[in-house]
C-alpha cells in the first residue's frame, strides 16, 4: 500500500466563501425591509397588559413619552414624523397637541409612559390631550405573560 508522505499531501487552506455573499445580502435585504425609524427611543419599562390592540402606523400617530429620571421626569413629544424633542411644561404639551389636532382632527396619540411613573404625571398629560380635543389615545404596553 502506497502511503502519501506528509510533505506530498496537498491541503487547501481556502474557506469557501461564495455563499457568504448570498447570506449577507439576504440579511441586508431583511433589515432594509424591516427597518423602521423609531421616532422616540426613550428607554423605559412599559406596563404589561393582556389586551393589546395594534396601533395603526399608517397615519403616523404622535408620541408623548414620560420617563422617570433621577431628578424628576423627562417628557418628550414627537409628531410621528420627526424625532422626539423634550418639553419642560404641561403647557408645551397642550400647545404641541393642539397644533397636531388643528392639522389633523383625527390624529391619534401614543402615550408611552414608564410603569413606575406616578399617575399624577400621566394625569397631567391626559389632561393636556383632553384640553386639545384629541380623539384617539393609545397607551403603549408590553404583552403580559403568565408568571
Amino acid at each position: 500500500m502506497a502511503l502519501i508522505r506528509g510533505r506530498d499531501r496537498e491541503t487547501s487552506a481556502k474557506i469557501f466563501t461564495a455563499s457568504m455573499a448570498d447570506i449577507v445580502f439576504l440579511l441586508i435585504v431583511f433589515f432594509v425591509i424591516t427597518y423602521k425609524v423609531e421616532v422616540d427611543r426613550t428607554r423605559m419599562e412599559l406596563p404589561d397588559s393582556t389586551v393589546r390592540v395594534k396601533i395603526p402606523e399608517e397615519d403616523k400617530p404622535a408620541v408623548i413619552s414620560i420617563a422617570p429620571r433621577s431628578e424628576g421626569f423627562l417628557i418628550r413629544v414627537s409628531t410621528g414624523e420627526e424625532m422626539s424633542l423634550p418639553v419642560s411644561t404641561d403647557e408645551e404639551v397642550v400647545t404641541f397637541a393642539s397644533t397636531e389636532v388643528a392639522r389633523d382632527p383625527n390624529k391619534a396619540f401614543i402615550v408611552k409612559a414608564d410603569e413606575e411613573v406616578p399617575y399624577e404625571r400621566f394625569d397631567a398629560v391626559l389632561d393636556a390631550l383632553k384640553q386639545s380635543k384629541v380623539k384617539y389615545i393609545y397607551l403603549l404596553s408590553d404583552q403580559k405573560t403568565v408568571e
Binding site: 423602521k36 423609531e38 427611543r41 390592540v53 395594534k54 402606523e57 383632553k130 380623539k135 393609545y138 404596553s141
Partner: peptide
C-alpha cells in the same frame, strides 16, 4: 433598527 412596540390599550375620548 428596533422592533418598536406598536401595541397598546386604546381608548377614545
Amino acid at each position: 433598527s428596533a422592533f418598536s412596540a406598536n401595541r397598546g390599550l386604546d381608548f377614545s375620548l
